[in-house]
């Protein structure tokens, strides 16, 4: 799409370096709806904006330049935070990936930043020589090299765009709090739908296969004897495992004991299945013991596995730590799933 024809562009400014699109700083319903879709994994790879230079308000040669990724959520947070300000926004081409991941993977890094500064002729646009980058870009950008290669100093702004107005008021100095990456409940909750969508991709076909097998082997359990509506135990326990690992663990992340996510997930699984058993123990006792035990084992392993998968979304886990926990936990989780599956199959025969 042409840069000027994107929905958030309100005008085109004539500048020393040519026409620059001016962007809205109020996010509209389309932007909010887009965020919902992205968090459900719909059209995530198309959620990019055109890289290049943009204007907020009516900036001049003294206005600060903020740099961001071309992931629309990152860009939207930035322009929203610059409401009523005069500033320039330089959008790097990170293939629609957010700032932190792009910095980690190299697309938001020194080389592309310098190239973009030169290509957009920022030295002709402004009289100062400063770029303000989100702090989380620092794992990709070497500030001292940027200065050496294009003459612009890099200032790392706050981690969260929402702190930008305070950062600006503070004379472009970030407080200790602005420098820290937190992982609050709302941020963790926002990631849950994507976890569930990913789990559903294998869980829903698996559940259909189990229902089909169940109906073949024990027709009465499929509601053919008038007990329709009773959820078969395998479906119940698969769901509880997924819920414990992908919903309960993110929500209770700092309440669940243990440092390893695999442990947190296991405990969430024990908690959830304990409640389930308390509420509906007949679902467990109505099945052959080997089937109940097998599915309980699978449920707990799944909870632990999915919780461990959430390390990828977390903002504080180190790859060395994940590798360490993975080496111990993954073989145990896979073994538990295999043993659980064997127990269940033995109960069918």
């Amino acid at each position: 799409m042409e840069k000027e024809r994107q929905a958030f562009v309100t005008a085109v400014l004539d500048t020393a370096v040519g026409p620059v699109p001016k962007v809205a700083t109020r996010l509209g319903p389309v932007d909010h709806w887009g965020r919902v879709l992205v968090r459900l994994g719909i059209g995530r790879m198309r959620y990019a904006i055109e890289p290049g230079l943009y204007a907020v308000g009516n900036p001049d040669g003294k206005s600060p330049i903020f740099v961001t990724a071309n992931y629309k959520l990152s860009f939207d947070q930035l322009r929203g935070a610059l409401h009523k300000k005069q500033a320039w926004i330089l959008v790097l081409d990170t293939n629609g990936i957010n700032v932190w991941c792009a910095a980690g993977k190299g697309s938001f890094s020194t080389g592309p930043l310098v190239q973009s500064v030169l290509a957009e002729r920022l030295a002709e646009l402004v009289s100062h020589r400063t770029l303000i980058l989100p702090q989380l870009a620092a794992s990709g950008v070497a500030a001292h090299l940027v200065r050496k290669e294009c003459g612009f100093a890099v200032w790392y702004g706050p981690v969260c765009a929402s702190h930008l107005p305070a950062y600006w008021r503070n004379g472009f100095k970030a407080s200790r709090r602005m420098r820290r990456k937190e992982f609050p409940l709302a941020a963790r909750a926002e990631l849950i739908p994507m976890e569930l969508v990913n789990a559903g991709k294998w869980a829903i076909p698996l559940m259909l296969v189990i229902l089909f097998l169940n109906s073949l082997l024990t027709p009465e359990s499929f509601g053919l004897d008038g007990r329709a509506g009773k959820t078969p135990l395998p479906i119940l326990l698969l769901s509880s495992g997924i819920a414990a690992g992908s919903i309960l663990t993110p929500l209770l992340l700092f309440i669940l004991p243990g440092r390893a996510f695999a442990v947190k997930g296991l405990l969430a699984g024990i908690l959830l299945n304990g409640i389930l058993f308390w509420e509906n123990y007949r679902a467990f006792t109505g099945e052959p013991p080997s089937s109940s035990a097998g599915w309980l084992l699978i449920s707990l392993a799944l909870a632990s596995l999915l919780a461990m998968n959430f390390t990828g979304c977390s903002t504080f886990t180190s790859p060395s730590g994940v590798r360490k926990e993975l080496r111990v936990a993954l073989p145990l989780q896979l073994a538990a799933i295999a043993v659980g599956g064997a127990l269940w199959l033995s109960s069918l025969l």
Partner: peptide, 11 residues
């Protein structure tokens, strides 16, 4: 809110 992960692993 403490966000500490496994001990003694970071390189």
């Amino acid at each position: 809110m403490s966000a500490s992960y496994l001990k003694n692993v970071a390189s």
